[in-house]
């Protein structure tokens, strides 16, 4: 259980995280979704007590991170797979972590086995591929058999096989009753991995809901219609206050139920060649919802204004 209340982080003039409140419950995978630069990593670092919040607080099972006794046994985290000394072996990396929280050395071999790195345990971590580094990071997160797990962009740069492995792995962890909080900037990935979503943009909470709700709300449903009497139908639909847009060989109708469109066609005696629902892509949906809060949009706008502004003095 992770609870954030009014979490705020300011770097000089930039507000990286702005009054963020959300909660993450055990037993399911909760996605932490937002465009790049939305403040996901900063939030994760604050959960782990690495960065100090400017205001607000975040608690794990009711405690602040630095109040946890042997924190690796309560919270496991993979923030950056490259946070390993390149000349240290995978085993030595896990050995010192285990030692620090009085975790049995046997556990090191167990987690190496779980992530499939036993064969390269004594090899230097600097020579690992990205996928292997991610696995080592996951092994480190699992070391203390924690109830709460945080993963920051765990599938970034992985091949499809690696992505699938991580996705299944998260589901398994959640099924075991753990709290799994995983960040990503890809909604399509989150739709497959997470059942709950915390969505942020520019450091502010946009929504917290189930993934299905978010996707349904996000993708505006539209219907594709093809007909030899398109002109008649277009007028009829427009009168019914639907939005009609031309598409290759037909029209795309939005703002009207698919059944209603069929009825209108029937009433007007219009022959239909196609009447099919169009799911907007998840990426489009995501863009729609977070559109206003994407960092670089604002920059572009400001730049454009500057370029267009008449030279005043």
């Amino acid at each position: 259980m992770i609870e954030a209340q009014g979490l705020t982080k300011r770097y000089g003039k930039t507000l990286a995280v702005d009054d963020l409140s959300f909660s993450v419950t055990p037993g399911k995978v909760t996605g932490f979704l937002g465009p790049n630069g939305a403040g996901k990593s900063t939030t994760m670092r604050m959960i782990l007590g690495l960065d100090n919040p400017t205001a607000g607080q975040v608690r794990i099972g009711g405690k602040r991170y630095h109040e946890l006794h042997h924190p690796l046994r309560t919270v496991g985290a993979l923030l950056d797979a490259k946070w390993v000394h390149p000349n240290r072996s995978a085993r030595a990396h896990l050995a010192w972590m285990a030692k620090s929280n009085k975790i049995s050395p046997r556990r090191v071999d167990e987690v190496l086995e779980t992530v499939g790195l036993s064969a390269v345990a004594n090899k230097r971590a600097g020579g690992f591929s990205l996928g292997m580094s991610q696995r080592l990071g996951i092994a480190a997160a699992l070391l203390g058999d924690p109830e709460v797990l945080l993963f920051d962009e765990p599938v970034n740069g992985l091949d499809p096989e690696g992505i699938l492995w991580i996705r299944k792995f998260m589901h398994r962890l959640a099924e075991e009753g753990r709290t799994v909080f995983v960040s990503s900037h890809l909604l399509s990935e989150m739709a497959l991995t997470a059942s709950e979503l915390v969505v942020i943009g520019k450091g502010k909470l946009i929504s917290q809901s189930s993934t299905d709700d978010f996707v349904a709300r996000a993708s505006e449903n539209s219907v594709k219609v093809r007909s030899p009497q398109l002109d008649v139908l277009r007028d009829a639909l427009t009168r019914a206050s639907a939005t009609v847009a031309a598409a290759d060989d037909g029209v795309v109708v939005s703002g009207l139920d698919i059944a209603k469109i069929g009825e209108i066609a029937m009433d007007n005696g219009v022959v239909l060649h196609e009447l099919s629902p169009q799911r907007g892509s998840l990426e489009q949906a995501f863009m729609q919802i977070t559109g206003d809060s994407v960092e670089y949009h604002a920059d572009l706008e400001a730049e454009a204004r500057q370029a267009l502004a008449p030279t005043a003095n």
Partner: peptide, 11 residues
């Protein structure tokens, strides 16, 4: 190499 963060996470 960022291991200081892992260190502070553990301790």
């Amino acid at each position: 190499f960022g291991t200081i963060r892992t260190t502070f996470q553990a301790i």
